[in-house]
């Protein structure tokens, strides 16, 4: 920023001294540009090019089973998308999944972070081991949880029966509402450690002195948690929530593996809708339009979060 404001007036005047300065600055910035060029090129190749390509594709009729008929259709794909009740149904389900899973994962992650933040024996071992679920591929953890809930061989049914709890003999995946339970549990099991890790890092930046002075002022631990820990953890909380919300919005593999969107359509989400348009309908133009819509929604969500963070002063401000 500073260099730019200095450079601007120098370009305006034509006096000899600034000229020398300008050539020096120009040379300097040329080197700078050259140095960032590889990074920009890489970014352009892996992020911008696909994005633009997708944007162009979304304005075309491009169905692979009808080769040679591809043509520009303007906003026809988008029009078809917003008039499709399935799109809105899937989007609504995605929203509910996002709110429920992120809330549960956040609460569980916070509790987990507070526990492993304390001093106790074998803390390092516990900290490392809570990360194991996070290191397991999503498809694998989804398969694991699918088997846990299997009525013939899963342990959930066995445990419920042994404890005389209601819910044994239930075929979870045949109920439009209950099918979400294994999905959300699997998602929680996999992603809670990630939130816990981010929050733990945040906890470690809070100086102990603040707690000491609060104790001297007579605050109990509950008050200290609400008045010190939570507010000072805000930046870490925000980062964790942004990451999790966006990835919850794109949830696909867990649902694909566990229910295939069923029973009926009851666990179909918007990423599943997109997959269907691309891979089943082979309608690449339409699929691209859905992908663009998802990207825009993700950007809006991210912008809202960043704004919230800025408003009340976080470290990203």
């Amino acid at each position: 920023m500073a260099a730019k404001t200095q450079l601007a007036p120098a370009l305006g005047t034509g006096s000899p001294q600034p000229k020398r300065r300008r050539s020096y600055m120009a040379a300097r910035s040329r080197v700078g540009y050259l140095l960032v060029l590889p990074a920009v090129a890489a970014l352009a190749a892996i992020a911008i090019y696909p994005l633009v390509y997708n944007l162009v594709l979304s304005t075309r009729f491009d169905v692979l089973t009808e080769p040679g008929t591809g043509h520009f259709t303007g906003l026809a794909n988008y029009k078809q998308m917003v008039t499709d009740p399935n799109f809105w149904g899937d989007l609504g389900r995605t929203g509910i999944f996002m709110v429920v899973s992120v809330t549960l994962e956040f609460v569980a992650g916070l509790i987990l972070a507070l526990i492993v933040h304390r001093q106790f024996k074998a803390r390092g071992l516990v900290r490392a081991s809570i990360l194991i679920p996070w290191a397991i591929p999503t498809a694998v953890s989804a398969l694991l949880w699918k088997m846990f809930f299997d009525i013939r061989s899963g342990f959930v049914d066995f445990a419920l029966k042994a404890l005389h709890l209601p819910g044994s003999q239930l075929v979870w995946f045949n109920s439009p509402t209950l099918a979400w339970v294994p999905i959300i549990l699997s998602d929680m099991w996999k992603n809670t450690p990630f939130i816990a890790l981010l929050l733990l890092a945040g906890l470690q930046t809070i100086p102990q002195e603040i707690y000491e002075s609060a104790r001297i002022d007579g605050a109990n631990s509950w008050q200290a948690f609400w008045a010190i820990t939570l507010p000072l953890l805000r930046p870490a909380i925000m980062v964790a929530l942004i990451f999790r919300t966006l990835s919850a919005m794109l949830v696909f593999d867990t649902i694909f593996v566990m229910t295939g969107g069923g029973p009926g359509q009851s666990t179909e989400v918007v990423a599943y809708y997109d997959w269907y348009k691309y891979m089943v309908s082979l309608n690449f133009g339409f699929g691209a339009a859905v992908a663009v819509a998802i990207t825009v929604l993700a950007l809006i969500l991210a912008a809202i979060y960043v704004r919230l963070l800025r408003q009340r002063g976080g470290f990203m401000a």
Binding site: N174, G262, P263, G264, S266, V280, L282
Partner: peptide, 28 residues
């Protein structure tokens, strides 16, 4: 038919919606 994957997906949905009691066979 090249459209079979899509036709099948619709039938799969109808069967699943019926078996889970969300729709009657006729509705589905």
């Amino acid at each position: 038919t090249p459209l079979y994957p899509q036709i099948s997906a619709q039938i799969q949905e109808a069967l699943s919606a019926t078996y889970s009691g969300q729709e009657t066979p006729t509705q589905a």
